[in-house]
Design a protein around this nucleic acid. Sequence first.
DNA 1: CATGAATGAGGTTTCATTCAT
DNA 2: GATGAATGAAACCTCATTCAT
Lengths: 219, 219, 219, 219
Amino acid sequence: MENEKETKKKLLECAMKEFSEKGYMKASIRNICKEAGVTTGALYFFFKDKEDLFGNLVAETLMGLNKIIVGHFMEEATATKALADSDSEISIAALAEAQGFDDDMAIAREVIRYLFKHKDVIGLLLTKAQGSCYENLPDIMVDKVETHYTQMYIAMKGYKSKKELTKEDKFIIHWMSHDQIDIFIHIATHCKNAAEGEKQMKNMIAYMIGGWYGVINSK
Amino acid sequence: MENEKETKKKLLECAMKEFSEKGYMKASIRNICKEAGVTTGALYFFFKDKEDLFGNLVAETLMGLNKIIVGHFMEEATATKALADSDSEISIAALAEAQGFDDDMAIAREVIRYLFKHKDVIGLLLTKAQGSCYENLPDIMVDKVETHYTQMYIAMKGYKSKKELTKEDKFIIHWMSHDQIDIFIHIATHCKNAAEGEKQMKNMIAYMIGGWYGVINSK
Amino acid sequence: MENEKETKKKLLECAMKEFSEKGYMKASIRNICKEAGVTTGALYFFFKDKEDLFGNLVAETLMGLNKIIVGHFMEEATATKALADSDSEISIAALAEAQGFDDDMAIAREVIRYLFKHKDVIGLLLTKAQGSCYENLPDIMVDKVETHYTQMYIAMKGYKSKKELTKEDKFIIHWMSHDQIDIFIHIATHCKNAAEGEKQMKNMIAYMIGGWYGVINSK
Amino acid sequence: MENEKETKKKLLECAMKEFSEKGYMKASIRNICKEAGVTTGALYFFFKDKEDLFGNLVAETLMGLNKIIVGHFMEEATATKALADSDSEISIAALAEAQGFDDDMAIAREVIRYLFKHKDVIGLLLTKAQGSCYENLPDIMVDKVETHYTQMYIAMKGYKSKKELTKEDKFIIHWMSHDQIDIFIHIATHCKNAAEGEKQMKNMIAYMIGGWYGVINSK
DNA sequence: CATGAATGAGGTTTCATTCAT
DNA sequence: GATGAATGAAACCTCATTCAT
């Protein structure tokens, strides 16, 4: 009863090690099994295939991350949108600043804590997934953030509708969304722990906010 | 004499196609040769191994890129350093702004033109090199930029020496260097041509400058 | 007590499905168990191995079929033999015709009804058994029929003993036996139900009888 | 130069042996290579995959067989059709008999000779191909013969058009077509050589002709 | 009666590379 | 310069079967 999942655990551990060292594609099922002291058949009893094995390593963490990101940015998007529907122009910009950015640190803090709570899995997902179905994860997260940032950008620019967005607007919004995700990735992959991550995050946020205003105020 | 380099050219063309489609690791030497209408033996006459083949595709472009980046940022670094050695504090910041940023567009323009002049090879290097010895290229370029940015940061912060740099300073400098490179990559991979790239670059620079000031001015 | 045979039944059902769809060799024990919602261990409690599982599916039907064929053809063989031992030559041919063929429809009808009563199992046996120990079933049945047909052939040819059979005689007897079985297989696999099978059987019998006379009367 | 295709030949020989002994599905690529004293990679230099290997063994023979069967039965079909378009009813039946059957022996002789000329390959195709793309070969040949036999049946029945064919007619035509092919298979798999095959064929043809008349004349 | 776990051998196919000619 | 042939290792995966519990 106690050691009933010993093998599976061992397999997952060894898989984690192998994937972390070699990346998804170069990781060898044989190696993982050999390391775990088990035949390949045993692995295939627990996991459907290589992808499933990788999935078992990251799925839970990924869902949690997703919940946090979608959750927060959706909340905000709704709030921003509500305000964007009101009349006074000044208040919009003020609010965007007050609500959009000042809250950022809080959100970021949660994200970062989560990232570090699952540091190794996150590392796998962000830098070792090439060849698996998770290889586009950052892009997917960027997409989610982008929706939110588009609303915020519209509000700050004083646009009345999405239709006023130029090609250039869209491009820079995409970039800033991308950069937002990249900041998280950077912190996750360059800081030792959450405490340090949060500390560095302050500058990162200053950078981002500065960047936003740079863009918004540029002619 | 005439067709003796025909085969090599064909091979390189087909290799470019294969690597571009599948990435370094999934690319198949056999496929490349089949496509080129040549046996694998022939390929190994011209190239030492898979890595060498890839290298032949990208080496020249890479060296050119290197020259541009190193060249420019080194020039600047020298100039900035000279100024940093002078006394007046005000002039330093003013200069950093005047010289550091205003010139950025010029440099960026050159880089971008170069990127688009070798768009396909650059694409290979930036997004398809995983598994080859070039997979860390962006990191290497970041390192180069970082030297320059460190000088600039010191100047703008009014530090008197490198020794005043805190851990946080170093971290954000690294991030901004990374982001600078990322901006180039983003443009190279998201714009159709140099003209569009340059157009989008304006906002990108506004973003970066804003970011810098955000960081420098943050308490 | 009640559900103790539930599992076995379920297993047999799923085995039937799997064997029918993929044939003996390609059928997967794992699949069968998965489909039955049971582990492979359970299957091996009820059945010795793959072959035993297949056997359990077909054994009963096979025995019944065997009984019918052997039974009937043996009866006939005895009857024909008795007549063959009598003297009058004419009566032999007349009888062979009168008794041998006219009864065929009755026998065939019974066989066909049986085949369709166990259509699915018969289908398994006749077309999906390759790789199992039943793959030669048709040959075995042919052998049984052949004994009978040999007697009948001797009678119709007016031979006095088995020894008069030439190599050619034996060959065509074997063929006709084979064809007889093939007719049953053809009907079992090409007709929807017994009724249709019986209807088509008329022509088949006309064909066979015609064939026999063709052979008997040929120089 | 002389032994340049030694390996391929060896591989084909061993493949022939393995397929003949175990059938397509149970045949093992590894075994074939081991037997040939070659690594699996070598096999995959010459053949695309298992199916291609099997195909190389049978393709040529199969095409030849096809040519013979299609060729002959098409000729006949044309001839019969031409006659069927003429007026006198009697002549049609007479002709069908005279031309349709009397020529059968000649055609059969050619087919049989061909079968025995490629006895082993034919054996492979007819009894060992299950699991490969050739597993339905007999059915395909039956289809080809069936077209011809349908014309012949119409002529002998005195029908004026295909539309007069009942379901029963079609069924028995299919059967007789099937049986025709089966006769060839039977001979190919039961006779030692062409000479014996041809000898046995006489009775087989008598059987078939008798069968046809049995069917045609049955009420 | 059945589970869950594991074996071990085997399956086909692909890979980058080598080398005599 | 290039071919054709071959290597040998490795890839992922599936199989029927066993057995302690």
